[in-house]
Design a protein around this nucleic acid. Structure first.
Lengths: 123, 123
DNA sequence: CCCAAGCCTGCAAGAGTTTGCAGGTTTGCA
DNA sequence: TGCAAACCTGCAAACTCTTGCAGGCTTGGG
């Protein structure tokens, strides 16, 4: 029984789904609580259409759940632990090469989690 | 400072690298200790060329390290925790839909970890 | 009833990934 | 020195993913 093959394919699909900067940021944003599409678009500074397309993918694999309230569609993580698990990957990235600001992985985590003022600096 | 953008891109690169069944199996195999290319090719039942190509990608992002001994190239995980972290993703996959054998995530983990006889059953 | 806000889907061009194959390098052994 | 084992790299065809755009649906307010 090639169970390991099946599991590895399923896992690969999950990793594929998360293998996009926008979607990772969505997951982290939703880790803080549910939010509607416009709110997510504002938070990530991306067109709402793109957010919607990413959410459709996350929805298709049941990583997020939808709740409709009037015209707004609110999304939340199906499993709230997902955001923390994603951040657990920080020790594995070779961040030292390209993020000069952060001397340690801990500060990288802090940088991510920090709620920056969403106004002045663009992308 | 768009630190979060940089971190999300780095993380996405990591996820992209792991978003392939063969490479996930390589990581799990190497989680048990170092192995040479032929050994990995036998373990995964794949052509050695393909293994080599996957390893080149993992090496480029420093997820694995190489040690040469004569004609053999032995590979090991740069960070041994990687394999365990990958398995921590099992609760997030919607495995119930497609792996009828496994009733619970725990058994999926067990199925993965189980050392199956590598002989009879093909792929 | 009509409009606009908020969101969704389909599509196609461009970009990126995967894979087998051909050909190369290095090492060990006779 | 010659040969074979064990790997590595480059390439091109096939495939998949991304993204903006055009268009569609539903809801709430006037």
């Amino acid at each position: 029984m090639p169970s390991r093959l099946i599991v590895s394919r399923e896992l690969a699909d999950l990793f594929k789904l998360l293998a996009h900067p926008d979607r990772l940021r969505l997951v982290e944003e939703l880790g803080a609580g549910e939010m509607d599409v416009t709110g997510l678009a504002d938070a990530l500074d991306l067109p709402a259409t793109r957010i919607s397309q990413h959410l459709a993918l996350l929805r298709a694999q049941r990583l997020v759940e939808e709740r409709r309230d009037g015209r707004n569609h609110f999304y939340r993580l199906s499993n709230p632990h997902l955001a923390a698990w994603v951040l657990d990957a920080l020790p594995f990235i070779d961040i030292r090469q390209r993020l000069e600001d952060a001397e340690h992985f801990d500060s990288a985590r802090a940088l991510w989690s920090a709620r920056e003022p969403q106004s002045s600096s663009s992308k």
